[in-house]
């Protein structure tokens, strides 16, 4: 069965390693924080100026001055710090953040990503996504494999305006875990009960299948 958003977040959480500073985008990536192993030390960075984000506050304890990049009220962990926007992006642009997890509308086999604009329909802006993808070396994209009409979002070439070029290293979808390498998608894992054929059918970009493809362990 294909994963839901929570399932995608749970699988991505397995990519988070001890000692990582992690930037989570808005949407599915935000959920990842809930499923990171408890026996490792991880610090979450939010681009609006906090390192060491904690869980949502208890009802009545929310503070208008302490929010995340999604404008949600948050708390901080012991050892947290606040800083200005320029310093926040110094962390990002300067490659001090170990892992970036963000959503996408499309990705292509050479690692391009599109997630900020649908010409004539939707222009919300890129926020910090262009800065993140231009500098991060370890970028995981969380997304659905196809759109609601069943068209693939895992493409040979993105059709939407790009956010960044040749930057995506891994994609976790409701169907599969894909590695982006040598201008191809390499199928690493299948969602439980999803066949290689299902994934092949839902993938427009070049898909490399090497031997037996294991199921995700969630």
């Amino acid at each position: 069965m294909a994963l839901d958003k929570t399932g995608i977040a749970k699988r991505i959480a397995q990519e988070v390693e001890d000692g990582f500073y992690v930037n989570l985008g808005i949407g599915i990536p935000t959920l990842v924080a809930n499923y990171v192993r408890e026996d490792i030390e991880v610090e979450f960075q939010s681009e609006n100026g906090v390192l060491g984000m904690g869980p949502f506050p208890f009802d009545g304890e929310e503070d208008a001055d302490i929010i995340n990049a999604g404008k949600q009220t948050i708390t901080t962990m012991p050892g947290a710090s606040f800083f200005d926007s320029s310093m926040s992006f110094a962390m990002i642009r300067g490659k001090h953040v170990d892992l970036t997890i963000l959503g996408a509308m499309e990705v292509s086999e050479n690692g391009d990503i599109a997630n900020w604009k649908i010409p004539g329909k939707m222009v919300k802006g890129m926020g910090g996504a262009m800065d993140l993808v231009a500098s991060a070396e370890n970028i995981i994209v969380a997304m659905m494999h196809t759109n609601k009409h069943g068209d693939s979002k895992i493409l040979k070439k993105c059709s939407l305006p790009l956010t960044g070029v040749g930057c995506v290293t891994k994609v976790v979808t409701n169907l599969a875990v894909l590695e982006v390498k040598n201008n191809q998608f390499h199928l690493l894992e299948r969602a439980p009960g999803v066949s290689v054929e299902d994934i092949q059918k839902a993938t427009e970009g070049t898909l490399v299948i090497n031997g037996e493809v294991p199921e995700m362990n969630i």
Binding site: E62, I67, G70
Partner: peptide, 12 residues
Amino acid sequence: EKRIEQRTVRQK
């Protein structure tokens, strides 16, 4: 006024 855009809380 310090409006909150996305009041997000958890229960005790």
